[in-house]
């Protein structure tokens, strides 16, 4: 028979409180004092630093245009993510574990991301906006460089797949999980991920994308599926642009 941790009196497994001293026995104490903003403040801070950076880049001419601008903005963005990543390094480590990954899920993820990128390409064309106006990173900035396809892939597909995933499906997701159940964490991170791209029209496909990536993170507790999906999706869009499809 177990004993109460406070008064050592004998208790039953099914007891919610100790019968001798009234001490709550379940892991969650109803009287625990917490301020939700202890958890939310770092999350909001990351979001607003990034928002300011992207807003200034998109709406003002503070940063240089074209390839130089994208290098500067990417370097700052990566530095911000790494600073926050370092803060949560230990708690994020399990998300990088390769154990338990399923090839079947991975295959579905890749196929799903490719289908998604085709649908989005068609829809974007249909609402008569070229992808270049909608996606924050776009290939035309790399056309004058020595290796346009290599740089496009690095800046459009590889960088966001790693750093956006670590941020939105990594520490933002983890922090929100502490204060709200899994399903609404998927919704909130999905919305926030879409909003920070700062384009009203592209919310149409960025919200579903954010929700899908959040679902993968919540369901399988790993960042790998999200990273692969994000990479496949962005890489397909890049390839379509180079082939001038859709």
């Amino acid at each position: 028979m177990p004993a109460c941790p406070k008064c050592q009196g004998l208790i039953q497994e099914t007891d919610a409180f100790c019968g001798h001293c009234g001490n709550p026995l379940a892991a969650t104490d109803p009287d625990r004092r917490e301020d939700v903003f202890d958890v939310l403040t770092p999350t909001l801070a990351y979001y607003f630093i990034t928002l300011l950076l992207l807003g200034i880049y998109k709406l003002t001419s503070v940063f240089p245009e074209g390839f130089e601008g994208i290098i500067v903005i990417t370097a700052i963005d990566v530095a911000i993510v790494i600073a926050f990543w370092g803060n949560y390094f230990q708690s994020l480590r399990p998300l990088f574990s390769l154990r338990g990954l399923s090839l079947k899920v991975m295959a579905f993820t890749i196929v799903g991301a490719m289908v998604g990128s085709v649908v989005v390409s068609v829809v974007a064309k249909w609402i008569n906006l070229s992808i270049q106006d909608d996606v924050f990173y776009s290939t035309y900035m790399f056309q004058d460089t020595a290796y346009p396809f290599l740089f496009s892939t690095l800046f459009i597909a590889v960088q966001p797949a790693i750093f956006e995933e670590v941020a939105f499906r990594g520490f933002l997701f983890d922090n929100l999980l502490k204060v709200t159940p899994g399903k609404s964490t998927v919704y909130v991170t999905g919305f926030v991920f879409a909003i920070i791209h700062l384009n009203i029209i592209s919310l149409l496909w960025l919200v579903p994308l954010g929700l899908a990536l959040g679902f993968l993170r919540g369901r399988y507790n790993t960042l790998w599926y999200g990273m692969v999906a994000h990479f496949t999706y962005n890489f397909s869009l890049t390839v379509f642009e180079f082939l001038s499809w859709f």
Binding site: L44, Y47, L51, G55, T180, V188, F191, V192, I195
Partner: peptide, 19 residues
């Protein structure tokens, strides 16, 4: 889900203002 909705709305509100 009041918590998720109000938090998201707050982020939307702040984003609009910042932009």
């Amino acid at each position: 889900n009041p918590f998720g909705a109000i938090l998201t709305a707050f982020i939307v509100y702040l984003t609009l203002n910042v932009v």
